[in-house]
Each structure stands twice: as C-alpha cells, then as structure tokens.
C-alpha cells in the first residue's frame, strides 16, 4: 500500500475525519499512530484496558481503506499450524492411496530397488507444494493482492514461543516455509496487534512495533463517541451519564466500565425512555455497566454521592 493510492491516509487530520465518518471517534494520538504505521510500514501494538476500542480501531481502518480484515485471535497453545499454514495431510494421504496404482506403471521396467527409488526422485516433492498448503490467517494476509489489515488480537494470551514466530512477519512481511521457501507479501498488510497487558510482551516484538496506549477517554471525547454511536439520546442525559461513568472509574473496582459498556448503557437507557438519571434507574441498570457482583454491591451505597457530586 502506498500513500499516493490512498488519499484516506494522507495526513493525520484526514485520518481523524475518515474515522469519524465511519463512527469511530478517536483522539489525535490514535490518528497519528495509524498515520505513522502506514508511512513507515510498521505494525502497531495497541495496549489499553479492555473495551476502549482496540479491536474496533483495526476494524474501522479496514472499512476506511476498503480492504479485507484478517483476524487472528490468540490463545494459549496457539501454534504455527493454526496461525501460519498447515499441510493438508488428509489430502496428501488420500492422494497417495489414489496414486498407488499409478506407482506400478511408473516403476514398470525398473531394475532393483535403487533404480526404482531413482525414478521416484525425479518427481520431486509434489506432495509438498502450494496445492497442499492450507493457508492460515498470517499466510492469508500475505497473499492478498490489494493488501489487508491483519489484526492479531490479544497477543498477550499467546505463548512466548508464538511471539518469536511473529517476528519475521512483522519486520519483513514474509514467511519462511521450509518445504517451499520464502513467501513474500504481495502487498504488505497493515498490522495491528492488541494486548491487554496480562503479561509483558518481549522486547524483540515491542521493538518492531509502534507502541500505542489507549487510555479511557476524556469526558468530551466520550461524549462525542456516545453522540456518534447513540445519536438519539438527548444531550443532557448524555452529559449526565458520561460524568457518572467517569466518576465510577475513579472508584476501586474489579473492572472499570469501558467505552463499550458506556455505549451499551446509553442504548439501554434509551430503550427505557429515560431522560434523566435517578437513583432507582441507575441501580436497576447498573448490571449493564458493572460486570462483577462485588462491584455492583460496592457501588450501591455510593450511588447517591456519585449522582449528586458535592460540587453541584
């Protein structure tokens, strides 16, 4: 992908506007990261608490550029057979069976074992060629003609060994397959890696990436996000609910509500035809925001002071 073909990514402002048109309100920092990732052809490692739009960023970029999004969800025990490529063993075995009879014709007239083997060698490694290769997400991303967005989701969930596997892809956009050789990307894809910071990512991987940390948004930014995602909600309620969520994040909770939860809450308030927050309403719908029973119980007694901050 080159800049000149993609006016959407020509400048930081352009990206900000483009994202906004697709319903993804982002801070300038995020737009800068996408801009740099594109200009310098570097992967972006996106970190931040769950639910701040890390995965959404990759999805929106894909829509913006109108290229396929190829997603690799990481988990413990993910290995190259599921991430890179696999040989179609079943097909290989089936073919050997089917071709068994052919073998007799081929070896017809060969004298002794040595000559038979000699003849077989002439056919090369037909069973280890591209036809028998099953591409998995990483290889698939390399094979796209128009380029692609490759999303490696929750890379911190994968094993340590898997990270080393990614290094070749991330720095050179190529994959080495021992039986075939090196597969270079037709068009280098744009890569997003996301991490929830459950463990430290290795330095080697970090070094190859731009490092983007997405924190919880500021009040204004979150209001703009709600405005774009839930446009029907009235302004006063929007302001009130964002303020409330922000004050919730100040509390010591197991899991602080993220943007996605704020959006869900705004939607449910809309469904309930609420036009103002009151204690009853909040305590009835709190389970949309808080996902742990402990958190809900801990928040209960504080509701009044959260809803009516002493300043007002």
């Amino acid at each position: 992908m080159h800049t000149q073909d993609l006016p959407q990514l020509a400048s930081v402002e352009e990206i900000e506007a483009g994202f906004e048109a697709h319903g993804y309100i982002c801070s300038r920092k995020i737009a800068t990261a996408v801009f740099l990732a594109f200009q310098l052809r570097k992967p972006v490692l996106v970190e931040g608490p769950p639910g701040v739009g890390k995965t959404e960023l990759a999805k929106t970029t894909a829509t913006l550029l109108d290229v396929p999004l190829i997603r690799l969800q990481c988990y413990e025990g993910l290995d190259e057979a599921k991430a890179l490529y696999e040989w179609k063993y079943g097909k290989q075995l089936l073919y050997t069976q089917v071709l068994k009879e052919k073998l007799g014709d081929l070896l017809h007239g060969a004298k002794g074992l040595a000559e038979s083997v000699e003849r077989l060698h002439q056919f090369g490694d037909i069973f280890y060629s591209e036809e028998f290769l099953e591409p998995r997400p990483l290889l698939k991303a390399m094979q796209q003609d128009k380029g692609a967005i490759l999303l490696i989701d929750e890379v911190d969930k994968s094993d340590y060994e898997f990270e080393s596997l990614l290094l070749e892809i991330l720095s050179d956009y190529q994959i080495s397959i021992p039986e075939i050789g090196t597969v270079k990307a037709r068009t280098s894809p744009m890569v997003f890696l996301t991490s929830n910071n459950t463990r430290d990512i290795s330095d080697a991987l970090k070094r190859r990436c731009l490092h983007l940390y997405i924190p919880f948004p500021s009040v204004e930014l979150e209001e703009r996000i709600i405005c774009s995602r839930v446009p029907d909600i009235n302004e006063q309620l929007r302001h009130q609910l964002v303020e409330f969520v922000h004050s919730l994040r100040q509390l010591d909770l197991k899991k602080a509500p993220a943007i996605s939860e704020t959006i869900d809450w705004a939607r449910s308030l809309l469904l309930l035809h609420a036009d103002q927050l009151d204690e009853q309403l909040v305590s009835d719908t709190l389970n949309v925001l808080l996902k742990f029973e402990d958190d809900i119980e801990a928040t209960g007694p504080e509701l009044r002071s959260l809803l009516h901050p002493p300043g007002n």
């Binding site: 930081v12 300038r28 990261a33 740099l36 972006v44 970190e47 731009l210 490092h211 983007l212």
Partner: peptide
C-alpha cells in the same frame, strides 16, 4: 504535540516509560 506523540510511540514501550 504531534511530534511528541509520534516519538513516544517509537521510543516509549510501556506506560511507565511513556
């Protein structure tokens, strides 16, 4: 601020470093 954000992305690799 643009330069600051950009440099931070390449040079700082953890929130503490940022």
């Amino acid at each position: 601020s643009l330069l600051r954000d950009g440099l931070a992305m390449t040079l700082a690799k953890t929130p503490e470093e940022e």
